[in-house]
Amino acid sequence: MCTNIVEHTPLAGSGKGATGWFKVAQAHVTYDHPFHVDLEHALNIDFTNDAAGVDARVAVELTLDSAKNLAAAILAAVDRAERYESGA
């Protein structure tokens, strides 16, 4: 909200938060003030189920470089997974 950098995506899967496992329904990706990492702004990803309450949340707060590395690692794993599933 301080930077106006907010992205949202629906998700299907599970996440383990403060109260245990829950169905993850969306991710909110922001570049804004974090709560824990000692940076003015961080790349924050909140995996949430907005219908299940505010504590249905798995949070990560990342430096921009580590966020890029995470995105690349996810895409690389997804690429290998799709080839695995197709038998290629």
Binding site: M1, N4, V6, H8, A18, H28, T30, D32, H33, F35, H36, N44, D46, T48, D50, G53, V54, D55, R57, A59
Partner: peptide, 18 residues
């Protein structure tokens, strides 16, 4: 918006654009 741990409530508001 919600009641809960301040950072959980704050994260929801952050995602909603304030």
């Amino acid at each position: 918006v919600a009641q809960g741990a301040p950072e959980d409530v704050g994260a929801k508001v952050r995602a909603e654009g304030g």
